[in-house]
Design a binder for these strands. Sequence first.
DNA 1: GAGAAATTAGATCGATTGTTCTAGAAGGGT
DNA 2: ACCCTTCTAGAACAATCGATCTAATTTCTC
Lengths: 191, 191
Amino acid sequence: MTKNRYRRDELLEIAIDLFAEKGYVGTSIRDIAKAIDRSVSNVYHYFENKEELWLAILEYSVQGLPEKLRTVAHSEGEPLERFRKLLKLHLEESTKHQRETKIFFIDEERLSPKGKTINKRIQKEILDIYVEQFRLLQSHNLVRTKNLKILAFNVLATINWFLRWYDPHGDMSKEEIYDEIIGFVLHGMCK
Amino acid sequence: MTKNRYRRDELLEIAIDLFAEKGYVGTSIRDIAKAIDRSVSNVYHYFENKEELWLAILEYSVQGLPEKLRTVAHSEGEPLERFRKLLKLHLEESTKHQRETKIFFIDEERLSPKGKTINKRIQKEILDIYVEQFRLLQSHNLVRTKNLKILAFNVLATINWFLRWYDPHGDMSKEEIYDEIIGFVLHGMCK
DNA sequence: GAGAAATTAGATCGATTGTTCTAGAAGGGT
DNA sequence: ACCCTTCTAGAACAATCGATCTAATTTCTC
């Protein structure tokens, strides 16, 4: 009845690697099993099917992100400073789960209705957090534009795109990049 | 010897649709043939294999983008105004070839070395155009930050992410969205 | 230590993949 | 009429896919 959590998580880890590298459709159950030197049945013992494995990865990593962001979003303090903290946390969490977050976006369309729904729900939750923040900042007359949804898309664009080009082994430090991105979001490119 | 250009392009069109919808790995040659009511051999008559079909799509659409952008980038006029034109053109071209440009980014990692190289070359060309523009704007003391590469990533982020959420049948006009994005790139979210 | 449950490997399933082969139909040039 | 290239369809190929089945082994519980 009770499944071996450790062996299960090992499978999750290797699956995340492969999914991130070769995509959902591009990664077979055999690939995953072979990569960790197990049998195919072993994978199926821990996960009902391929899609459930995918969903487990989401639960394992991205699922909790909205809640974490909300904690900061609803914390005390100055609105703009709180928003800055929100961006920072979002960037940190995305970096921490870079592989999974990448997966989260890339193969969205290849999932079953169930998986797609969960995917979209999480993304919607995050979007709403930002729109809510913008509304608050707007009431303090701090926001430049009127269309808050497009603004949220643009902010999320920079954060999520960052996952595509960021190389942990690169020569720029995380903090350096974070500040650059936060600066861009807040003030754009112009002086 | 001479292949029927029209029939070939019909195949390209349907392939773009399917690739954009279900991805490179998720779309089979049979899917493509069936969608246009031809035989599998017909597809192979016009394209050597699946990857060549993919590359033909790139040539058909995205390949010419860097050249078009360069034309504007090297045109006369005020630096900032020219940059604004560059953004506008980039957005327009991306919208015009929304499906292909989406393909261009999504399945990058699933290609052969040859395909990956071409993909990366085009992206690098575009990145360089932007970095060059930033350098010029910087010399006019118009740029806020020092790290031009990250800046370029962030600008490209908003443009490319836009393709993910933009819905041609939505209630916002293109021009409206373009202006919003250009404004965000130039001045960020803050007043 | 017996028995039940959890875990594993390996063979196997039908379906689908990219690709090739064979061969016939259509088309244009002479 | 003829031939030669272009185009087309359909069967077939080996490989791989997600998933299942059977059966053996390990681990836990009493």
